[in-house]
């Protein structure tokens, strides 16, 4: 079947034999965006987290047919080196990653959280950020999440001042 996805702002049409193929593999293997990671394939680790219409989704367990016509954001579309997303900027400032493999999933989960809860408390973070990091970077991540919220707020107020 033909599936249309708006991936990081660009319309992509893919032909797929099995409409139940997890979105993760369409993103990684067909669209060749490798930033979204495979960790478990069973919705248990969060490494594959991306956004479907701004909601954080574990793409390893999300059949591609449900994404038809929707907006997908991956780590590559969250921000880039010239124009980092506040979450990425905070991650750089706090030097969060170790091996780095889980990090895109955490950053996507955090970006989605900040959309809903711009100033998350520690409890908000504990409840919503439930991915797995084996290197144990949670301590720095928590600091980075709070910092990202600050950067975001500042950015928003700058933007509204400009209006």
């Amino acid at each position: 079947m033909e599936i249309s996805l708006i991936v990081n702002g660009v319309l992509k049409t893919v032909h797929i034999e099995d409409e139940n193929t997890p979105l993760l593999w369409v993103i990684r293997d067909i669209l060749d965006l490798k930033g979204t990671k495979f960790g478990c394939g069973k919705s248990a680790c969060g490494a594959c987290t991306l956004h479907v219409d701004d909601e954080a989704v574990r793409s390893c367990s999300y059949p591609v047919k449900f994404a038809d016509g929707k907006r997908i954001t991956t780590i590559e579309g969250l921000g880039d080196r010239e124009n980092p997303h506040p979450v990425q900027q905070a991650w750089v400032e706090e030097i969060v990653p170790q091996c780095g493999y889980c990090q895109p999933g955490f950053m996507m989960a955090t970006a989605a959280l900040l959309k809903k809860v711009p100033k998350p408390t520690d409890e908000d973070i504990d409840k919503n950020i439930i991915n797995v990091c084996r290197c144990g970077t949670y301590y720095r991540m928590r600091k980075a999440i709070h910092k990202a919220a600050e950067i975001q707020t500042e950015k928003d107020s700058n933007e509204s001042n400009m209006v």
Partner: peptide, 17 residues
């Protein structure tokens, strides 16, 4: 700061997978 920091924050395809 880590030399691989940007690659790991911006999702570069650097892993075996």
């Amino acid at each position: 700061a880590r030399v691989d920091l940007d690659a790991k924050v911006f999702g570069d395809p650097i892993f075996g997978m």
